[in-house]
Nucleic acid binder design. Structure first.
Length: 292
DNA sequence: TACCAGGATGTTG
DNA sequence: CAACATCATGGT
């Protein structure tokens, strides 16, 4: 058992709530408040689980439990649950906005549940373009079950996302059989090739500025402003990345602020000035409010 | 039945 | 440069 200490503002129940938001989620499993997840590392798969009892408690269920593997898993969890962010700075900013301040009070300790893997956030956000979330989850499930990496533990299957190389080896028809639209399939192929051919990696993006990263992402056909910002907030810890076109955000703002109609893009850009520096976090809290 | 879903792109006016 | 059509399918 590995222990990982948590920062002051930390709420595991909210993490569970967020991670349980859809039953079709196939890239992690939750049993008895314990979260199971498979990640791939150097061509092998690592299955681990996380529970909480005054500390985060991590168990690795794969055979290899080298110190190196332990570090990989600890870093993954730290990234996934955003343990390093100073939430108090966000809460301070939120005081400029009564509605957001109330959400911060309600969800105190909720950290942005990220996607440590940039490829995953890009694929997932492309899947989610223009379709309802339920359908998006079932598309992801088909993609993962057909082409993903499977890890068995006590006769139970756990899945990891298909590798960029695997997806890049497919053709349009493979996706269309799974009910992907032709354009969605092409977009995912484009991203997969970028990664498989080494033109794009999390490492290289680290050295670039916010605008340079966005520019590089948007250059990929199929990645627009929404997708780029989504990935930047979920995978690259750009807490100010703002997916202003997001329909879920529009709905949340309409409800939370008691508007008659959904806000326009320019209205949202205007009101988000109050969240400056933390617009991604504000978006995440507003999304969380949709869970009811 | 028409319209909307955690958009992006290409074309038109 | 803004407005529109298109994509594919599921839900309401």
């Amino acid at each position: 058992m590995i222990e990982l200490s948590t920062p002051t503002a930390f709420n595991f129940e909210q993490i569970l709530r967020f991670l349980s938001r859809n039953e079709k989620e196939c890239l992690h499993t939750i049993k008895n408040k314990e979260i199971f997840k498979v990640i791939s590392f150097e061509y092998s798969l690592i299955l681990f689980s996380i529970s909480y009892d005054s500390h985060l408690q991590i168990s690795i269920h794969s055979e290899n439990q080298d110190q190196k593997i332990i570090e990989i898993v600890k870093n993954y969890v730290s990234d996934w649950f955003d343990l390093k962010a100073n939430l108090h700075l966000f809460y301070e900013t939120a005081q400029n906005d009564k509605v957001l301040a109330l959400l911060c009070q309600k969800f105190y300790g909720l950290r942005m549940i990220g996607m440590p893997d940039l490829f995953e956030s890009l694929v997932w956000s492309i899947i989610g373009q223009q379709i309802n979330l339920n359908f998006a989850y079932s598309l992801k499930e088909k993609l993962v079950q057909n082409f993903g990496q499977k890890h068995f533990n006590n006769n139970e299957a756990f899945y990891a996302l298909p590798t960029p190389e695997r997806l890049a080896s497919l053709n349009l028809e493979d996706f269309q059989h799974l009910q992907f639209s032709k354009s969605k399939a092409q977009y995912i192929l484009n991203v997969s090739r970028e990664f498989a051919e080494g033109n794009l990696s999390q490492e290289t993006l680290k050295k670039l500025t916010f605008e340079e990263v966005k520019e590089k992402l948007v250059k990929i056909k199929g990645v627009g402003n929404w997708t780029a910002n989504y990935s930047m907030m979920k995978s690259l810890k750009n807490y100010d990345a703002f997916p202003v076109e997001d329909v879920g955000l529009h709905n949340a703002v309409k409800t939370q602020y008691g508007l008659i109609a959904k806000p326009t893009i320019s209205e949202l850009n205007q009101m988000s000035e109050k969240w400056k520096g933390w617009r991604g976090y504000a978006t995440f809290y507003l999304w969380h409010s949709l869970l009811g």
